[in-house]
């Protein structure tokens, strides 16, 4: 019985953590370049809607996922234009993106509510999938979950072990210095803001094509905001993001198991824990010294312009 609950909770943690992971990884890249994009929820919704509708119309899942990714990037490029080129307030532009995504996906998605489309099934990995417990939890999933596993080390390696990753961090840390070294700040920020959007689109597609295969309005139900918090929780690190996303996901599953086995912790308190922890991290990371050490991008949210240099 208890073993079952552990297996099912861990299994659920990966399931509900995966959309959070994608959105968080994307936002880490965008924020590392110095662009704060609060529009994750809007981009995820557009991704979820696009993925579902393309799957419904064409029956081709990979086309659906690609379309969702592109639409996420398209929305992010709008934010990039607003915040990098026009240098408007990034918070305002990000919020606008949320409402835009909610509105457009709701409007265009009207006809797709209640339809059935192709969706992802679990693929068991040979040998690994047969390991007791671990096999069913980790290696008997749909392919998007596997993509999540792979994305984390790839992004980690990219950020810390490649020149391009170093340039990205430099742009977010000190755009002036990066510019002086000949890195194109504007282009770099554009690229990673848009890549961030790709990931949000993918996160949305995971929800509408694998997690709960359907389209209903506002189906991401606030997961984009959780991802915004997770970026801070993860102190802009992809590996901690993985732990954080699965932990946030795990808690959202564990609340139900706890109700069933009657653990006397109120659900509301449990749901609060991740955020409490996020606030704790923010307090902790507010000191500049610690910030530097952990890699919070110093130029986050600050538009860059050469002219203002003195």
């Amino acid at each position: 019985m208890n073993q079952d609950i552990i297996t099912s909770t861990l299994s659920g943690a990966l399931r509900s953590g995966t959309p959070l992971l994608f959105a968080t990884l994307g936002e880490i890249l965008a924020e590392r370049s110095g662009v704060l994009n609060l529009g994750l929820e809007g981009m995820m919704l557009m991704g979820a809607f696009t993925g579902f509708s393309v799957s419904y119309i064409t029956g081709n899942l990979w086309l659906a996922v690609m379309a969702a990714i592109l639409v996420g990037g398209l929305m992010a490029s709008l934010h990039a234009f607003m915040s990098i080129t026009l240098r408007v307030n990034q918070v305002v532009s990000g919020l606008a993106l949320v409402f835009l995504g909610e509105g457009l996906s709701g409007f265009w998605g009207h006809g797709f509510v209640g339809m059935q489309a192709e969706s992802f099934n679990n693929i068991k990995i040979p040998f690994l999938g047969d390991i007791p417990y671990v096999g069913t939890i980790v290696f008997d999933r749909d392919i998007l979950v596997y993509i999540g596993y792979i994305a984390v080390p790839v992004i980690w390696w990219f950020l810390y072990k490649t020149t391009a990753g170093m340039n990205l961090r430099a742009v977010g840390e000190s755009p002036d210095a990066a510019d002086a070294r000949g890195i194109n700040v504007v282009l770099t920020r554009y690229i990673y803001t848009i890549i961030g959007g790709f990931f949000s689109g993918l996160a949305g597609a995971y929800i509408s094509l694998a997690y709960t295969p359907m389209w209903v309005q506002d189906m991401t139900a606030g997961r984009g905001w959780i991802a915004v918090a997770l970026v801070i929780f993860a102190i802009w690190d992809p590996v901690i993001a993985l732990i954080g996303a699965y932990a946030f996901g795990g808690i959202s599953v564990l609340q139900f198991s706890f109700q069933i086995i009657q653990v006397p912790i109120p659900v509301n308190i449990m749901n609060m824990f991740p955020y409490l922890f996020t606030i704790f991290v923010m307090l902790f990371a507010s000191s500049n010294k610690i910030k530097k050490r952990f890699g919070a991008p110093s130029a986050l949210g600050i538009p860059y312009s050469r002219e203002e240099k003195t």
Partner: peptide, 25 residues
């Protein structure tokens, strides 16, 4: 009849997780 509260009227993934927890039990 085992009840689990989701604290939402409308959140498909959360409703699904609640359902799966019940099925697992």
């Amino acid at each position: 009849v085992q009840v689990v509260w989701t604290y939402t009227w409308y959140d498909p993934p959360t409703e699904k997780e609640a359902a799966l927890s019940l099925i697992n039990s």
